[in-house]
Design a binder for these strands. Structure first.
Length: 304
RNA sequence: GCCGAGAUAGCUCAGUGGUAGAGCGCUGCCCUGAAAAGGCAGGCGUGGCAAGUUCGAUUCUUGCUCUCGGCA
């Protein structure tokens, strides 16, 4: 019998952490944060990382452990999470992967094909070409090397075009060739994915009040202290950093910063919903109809 | 009170005598080393209200209402 791994996914501000903590207590589990920002140190408020109380009630992994000057990406997450999951299973506990980074969930469950790490120099040189000749030029280049990938990537999607070229540049093989070599957790574990959902208006209301709360907790102070650090390319992308930095730099007032941050967070939630919605493996739990506690009981029953 | 400007998409605004567009927002989708990122698609809206001119008015004329600016 393969071991079970539980995934808790869903949009931001829906209560994944709260549910995961209760579930961990109930089934004797440990939580792995599947989140591109909660890993970082010094971004507690920005990343909505689990607090002290939550960390005391259940063991958390990949939360507040990485230096914000360091980069982080799906591959890093996958490598670390896989090791942690194996260790948890050895301890005879249940791994609970909780988070909203859709790509990270996919990378872990379905795997990533073997591909080289980011080559920033190469990217820069491609960007220069795109700047001069347009990204259509790069797309054309890709079409000659890897027509299948070119077909899947839109001519305006420069990042993906560059990545596909980068892979070929580093390995001499096309993305299409490499894709066939993908292996993930689903090949050796029993994967259960639960998706948390609520009516859209409720999600948006939670986002708005959460942002208000972030300000009260000292969001501006946190961004000020992060501005003193050389944030990595990836850490800089946390929602709220640029928005608050704009206020600190005097580009607009605090009210505007709040409006922008709420809007960008709503858009983020929307993209998360769109990402998860299509995955047939997800069992949806409507927190508008079911209480967190009832949901925990239901999941506990199903994984026993 | 007088003078001027304006009233068009949720917001900011273009434009036209043959019933309308842009940016942002919003909605949907895509997603493999930046993913809290990036990309794609979607616009019937009592054209402030009423009347007049006209084959036809959102566009011209008049009145009214409201908003903004200036002068008192």
């Amino acid at each position: 019998m393969p071991s079970t791994i539980i995934f808790i996914v869903g949009p931001t501000a829906i209560g994944k952490t709260a549910l995961a903590v209760k579930l961990a207590k109930k089934v004797n589990g440990e939580i792995i944060s599947c989140d591109s920002m909660q890993v970082y140190k010094g971004m507690k408020i920005l990343s909505q990382a689990p607090g002290l109380a939550e960390k005391r009630s259940a063991r958390h992994h990949l939360v507040g452990s990485l230096d914000p000057e360091k980069e982080y990406n799906v591959a890093d997450f996958r490598k670390k999470a896989t090791k942690i999951i194996e260790a948890i299973i050895r301890r005879k506990k249940i791994p609970i992967v909780a988070g909203g980074s859709g790509l990270y969930v996919k990378g872990l469950v379905d795997g990533l094909f073997p591909s080289p790490k980011a080559d920033l120099k190469f990217r820069k040189s491609m960007e220069t070409i795109a700047l001069k000749a347009g990204s259509g030029k790069l797309h054309e280049k890709l079409r000659k090397l890897d027509p299948e990938s070119a077909r899947l990537i839109h001519p305006n999607d420069r990042r993906r075009i560059v990545r596909a070229l980068e892979i070929y540049n580093a390995t001499g093989r096309t993305m299409t060739e490499l894709k066939s070599q993908t292996r993930g957790l689903r090949d050796s574990y029993d994967i259960k994915i639960y998706g948390l959902i609520k009516p859209r208006e409720e999600i948006y209301a939670s986002i708005n009040s959460r942002v208000e709360k972030m300000f009260k907790l000292g969001l501006v102070r946190e961004v000020r202290s992060l501005k003193r650090v050389r944030l990595s390319r990836t850490a800089k992308e946390v929602l709220g950093y640029k928005e608050i930095a704009g206020y600190i730099n005097g580009d607009y007032d605090l009210d505007t910063a709040s409006v922008i941050l709420k809007r960008r967070t709503r858009r983020f939630a929307k993209r998360q919903l769109s990402w998860f919605r299509g995955d047939r493996r997800i069992e949806w739990i409507d927190l508008g109809k079911t209480s967190t506690l009832a949901a925990v009981r239901k999941i506990a029953r199903e994984v026993k």
